[in-house]
Design a binder for these strands. Structure first.
Lengths: 247, 247
DNA sequence: AGAAAAGTGTGACCTACCGCACATCTTTTT
DNA sequence: AAAAAGATGTGCGGTAGGTCACACTTTTCT
């Protein structure tokens, strides 16, 4: 684990078979795969170094493969006809995205647009090659099914929240959800979410202004804070009580 | 809110031996499985005959297995704390549900509540047994991944619609979506959707009254109709143009 | 068939929140 | 360091759509 973080020159990793296997270990669905199986897959992986704001894939583009977040964070967005945007999901180190393009017909588009929220490394694997790997390594298939189970489950909860809750409740819930996701170091204090209020609003499914108003209150209570275009959760404990206390 | 009168009788499970292999062929993920593999799985399948309105699983219940719709239709719902309900998804002949419980920890709940919309046969397979089958039959895993891909993709679109569209647009889109789903016989005319307006409203994520108002217009234009607590789409072609014409 | 239960249609409020406007604050660029 | 670009805070209508109320229709039950 420490070795992974020690890679100084990213380009070096691309040519060193072994160290790239370590890159893959960061991805949940590869974590428990045997060294042998991994070695085979590694050869086909492409690594992309991307900067904040750069677009990885677009929902208007034919799906070519599946992506993995090695480092940094990624937002997945969808638009309606009039250009309004919603962030469907935020992906983080270890996550997979565009997995919904697997086993679809070749002309199918990507399910969403993906954009970097922070600088980071993204791994790419061609659709057909991953499909073959899934066939050859049953453990990998199971991991994938497990991962998709979680994704589906989370998405149904999100759908319920978006449809039923008011802006205040949705905002707090989204803070909890993303807070959990970005609580890397297990430090319960000062969790950073790399989103602006504008972006956060599109996760919640509301307007910038509405979120801003809710945030004003939360800031006053010392629960959250903002610094350099990130949201910082200062008081996780209180945050989690907001919705559960009786009215 | 309105509690469902649940008559769940496990004794209704019928074991029908070999002819059950044919039952399984109706399910998308089993369709292309070899006769041999299928024969093994069949032995563990349980069949439930259920009536309209009967509850199959609840989101407050520990997940025991995965279900398949042999006939009839099923709604999957979630509730928030105050009892408001949303229909997350409607499942039909060939579909799978509760698949999100695969490979989760044993104490995990079902992701949603499932209730019959029409009389029908539901097949059940124990979670652990299906997990083992997935490991043993790679083709089955691939089918499952493919199915979950579609589910994920559809869900992201639905999330976008719920968050961004107004009631009119959401209603029409939902009619299109469900129309496609229930257009069994490929007859483009008179597609029946086995939902009341009340239920339909919870799919759309709005109130009964709002849907009723939109439906009034659509009925006046001869696009839809209602008969015996079903929605009937009379003019599919016009329905599909409603949202796409310029304003 | 008749009663009870469930679902529907529509008008009249009422309110949450969207959209606009504009000032202010923060970050990036040059 | 100044300028430009971007993000945020907040007041103020306007309105889509939620809520309530009640009459009416359709389905189910006995």
């Amino acid at each position: 684990m420490n070795q992974v973080e020690c890679v100084k020159d990213p380009n070096l990793a691309i040519y060193q078979g072994l160290s790239q296997a370590d890159l893959l270990r960061k991805i949940v669905i590869f974590k428990n795969l045997s060294q042998k199986s991994l070695a085979i897959i590694v050869q086909r992986i492409q690594t992309l170094e991307l900067k904040k704001g750069e677009q990885i894939i677009s929902e208007t583009e034919v799906a070519k493969g599946v992506y993995f977040v090695h480092s940094g964070a990624v937002k997945l967005t969808k638009q309606d006809e009039s250009g309004n945007e919603i962030i469907v999901c935020v992906k983080q180190t270890g996550d997979v995205f565009a997995e919904a393009c697997l086993f679809t017909k070749v002309s199918e588009y990507y399910p969403a647009t993906a954009t970097m929220l922070q600088d980071g490394k993204i791994l790419f694997l061609d659709k057909q090659e991953l499909e073959r790997d899934l066939y050859n390594f049953p453990e990998l298939s199971l991991q994938m099914i497990s991962y998709m189970s979680d994704a589906l489950r989370e998405m149904t909860s999100q759908l319920r929240d978006v449809a039923l809750l008011d802006v205040y409740a949705k905002t707090v819930k989204t803070l909890e959800r993303l807070g959990n996701k970005f609580n890397n170091g297990l430090n319960r204090w000062d969790i950073e979410i790399p989103l602006t209020i504008q972006e956060f609003a599109t996760v919640v499914g509301t307007t910038r202004e509405s979120v801003s108003r809710v945030f004003s209150k939360l800031k006053k209570d010392g629960i959250i804070d903002m610094k350099s275009r990130k949201i910082i959760i200062r008081d996780w404990c209180t945050l989690c009580t907001l919705l559960h206390r009786e009215y």
